[in-house]
């Protein structure tokens, strides 16, 4: 990063900004009925859902803002939104 030379920033450095703190609702991935449709990963605007193995996905709560798109779009209703306890 070079503030002195036109404020150039390095790639991907926003990862330092953990947006998980914004969350009011938290997605719980039950991993019971998952059919690996991949929609939770594809539709996540934060890019914070990852497939660990087939039928097993994880969400990075450091970034998840709790929008609930994954739960809404899950084709097997395997994701539940619960109130975030702070």
């Amino acid at each position: 990063m070079r503030l002195d030379l036109g404020a150039i920033a390095k790639a991907g450095t926003s990862k330092a900004n953990q947006t998980g703190g914004w969350r009011n609702f938290k997605p719980i991935f039950h991993q019971k009925k998952c059919n690996s449709c991949d929609l939770c990963r594809i539709y996540c605007p934060e890019g914070c859902v990852t497939m660990i193995e087939k039928k097993k996905y994880t969400v990075d709560y450091a970034y998840c803002k709790g929008c609930g798109i994954c739960a809404e779009e899950c084709s097997s209703s395997d994701i539940e939104m619960v109130v975030e306890e702070k």
Binding site: L3, D4, G6, A7, I8, A9, K10, A11
Partner: peptide
């Protein structure tokens, strides 16, 4: 690299 960033009150003056 990222050119043309948004710089707030914490760095613009510099």
């Amino acid at each position: 690299l990222t050119f043309g960033t948004l710089v707030g009150p914490d760095g613009y003056m510099e």
